[in-house]
Design a protein around this nucleic acid. Structure first.
Length: 463
DNA sequence: GCATGATCATGC
DNA sequence: GCATGATCATGC
């Protein structure tokens, strides 16, 4: 059979793939799709149709690239579109499954850089909740090779994941451990436990993945969107080889330890306006040498969450650390492993600590941090109790002097996290899945998960 | 002085 | 209009 492309030639494959832009496979292959017996639940169904009906080859699950001779791996993934029409990744890009047993003897150059990951051909479709994946319109097609600076970061990420497996801690892996390359869970919820070589504890099956923020950069590159809105911390391969993101950030901040926020802002000729929302973000960018109107490229790719914390003189943060509000109707449907809260907690954070000293705020230190496995398990208890309370319709415990006291997990319930209101006022609400038993209301003031200030002090600032 | 509920202010 | 960082108010 004569193919419409040359499977041994990269350019030919890529050019042929680009002919898919603007089409849906549903329309193109209506007649043949039923023969593949795909399940609607199969998240990889679009990829299978493109492989078998468009490129006309059988999908492989071995370690060789899909187009073996050309060294090209085909992947399809979803896009969402912002109000300003720009595209963003719907989710992380999942690469190959990590074999815990063989991983401990592998080398980065032989594992990651050959086979499936070195050169990827990406087919992005526009995701819509109401649309079947096969009917989605393909919007962007292009190939991706890692810039050499990124590969240095990915190499360190890969080494860290390997070290955890070597140390018998595959069950403690978290996406927050690493910067661009994550070890994400893969497979049906809860199940899919695997043996690991250096521990008796079974670990969730995991795959290497590129963080959603990293995929956004791949998308921008393929879509030819201007990258001028980003400023870089790592200007060259030489710097990337010598220093980690952490090294660079900490060394830049260190020069200002002990200075007040006002002194630092004066050093950069930025206005000292601690009341405005952007002040601390601007201070951080100035210290890092990033122009104020630009985003920090490495932070965006690694999805680093920056939190500025102001400590009282006794080292206790003045406020607990908040996260986005959760929706009652959604939390009751979530499983922990797919929950928004766990997703946030598996990020990498940069904490910037200031401390009050005679009414002035002094920069104490910065710290990269991600939540240890045992604390994520603690946070799960807070999440589970919250879900339970909403599900039972037992949010309000009692009403005293017009104030509603809740059954949500408080600071004494758990040392890591608690649940508290986060709203404009009591009338700023989300709908409830079930009427609250005591108040008979079908909506409730917006709440969110918070990190306890004592936890931030003891486990992040003082450690 | 802390815990908990309630609210404000800014910026997009 | 809403998300987010910040702050206030009350009671123990």
């Amino acid at each position: 059979m004569k193919l419409a492309y040359n499977p041994d030639n990269k350019d030919s494959i890529i050019a042929f793939a680009k002919l898919l832009i603007g089409k849906s496979v549903q329309t193109e292959f209506k007649k043949d799709i039923p023969k593949l017996n795909l399940s609607d639940k199969d998240k990889g169904q679009l990829g299978k149709v493109i492989e078998e009906l468009y490129f006309k080859y059988k999908p492989n699950s071995n370690s060789a690239a899909d187009f073996k001779k050309a060294g090209l791996e085909l992947k399809s993934s979803g896009l969402k579109q912002l109000k300003n029409k720009e595209y963003r990744a719907k989710e992380r890009l999942v690469l190959n499954i990590i074999n815990f047993v063989t991983a401990i003897n592998q080398k980065f150059d032989d594992d990651f850089l050959v086979g499936k990951n070195a050169h990827i051909l990406l087919v992005f479709y526009l995701y819509k909740k109401s649309t079947n994946q096969l009917a989605s319109i393909i919007k962007l097609v292009g190939d991706w090779k890692y810039p050499s600076e990124d590969l240095e970061i990915i190499r360190r990420d890969w080494e860290l994941i390997k070290k955890k497996i070597v140390d018998g801690k595959a069950h403690e892996l978290s996406e927050g451990d690493t910067f661009y390359l994550g070890a994400c869970t893969k497979g049906s919820k809860g199940g899919n436990l695997r043996f690991q070589p250096n521990s008796k504890i079974q670990a969730k099956q995991r795959a290497y993945s590129l963080k959603q923020g990293y995929v956004n950069h791949i998308i921008a590159s393929i879509a030819n969107e201007p990258l001028a809105v980003y400023g870089k911390l790592i200007p060259s391969l030489a710097v990337a080889k010598k220093k980690t993101i952490e090294d660079i950030v900490i060394s830049k901040f260190k020069r200002f330890y002990g200075l007040t926020a006002e002194q630092i802002s004066n050093a950069f000729a930025i206005e000292y306006t601690p009341g405005t929302k952007s002040f601390y973000a601007h201070l951080t960018k100035s210290i890092l040498g990033i122009e104020l109107d630009k985003e920090i490229e490495e932070f965006e790719k690694a999805e680093i969450i920056v939190k500025t914390v102001r400590l009282k003189e006794n080292n206790l943060p003045k406020e607990d650390v908040s996260f986005p509000t959760f929706k009652y109707e959604e939390i009751v449907k979530e499983e922990w492993d797919e929950s928004d809260f766990k997703e946030i907690l598996e990020h990498k954070f940069l904490f910037v600590f200031f401390q009050f000293e005679n009414e002035e705020l002094v920069l104490r230190k910065v710290k990269f941090w991600n939540m240890p496995y045992s604390d994520i398990q603690e946070a799960e208890k807070v999440w589970a109790k919250t879900k339970h309370v909403v599900k039972k319709g037992k949010i309000v415990k009692e009403v005293k002097a017009g104030i509603r006291y809740t059954n949500f997990p408080n600071k004494t319930f758990n040392s890591v996290s608690h649940v508290r209101p986060h709203a404009t006022n009591a009338l700023d609400t989300y709908p409830l899945p079930k009427k609250d038993r005591l108040t008979n209301k079908k909506e409730y003031t917006k709440h969110c998960f918070w990190l306890n200030s004592t936890y931030v002090r003891d486990e992040i600032y003082l450690k």
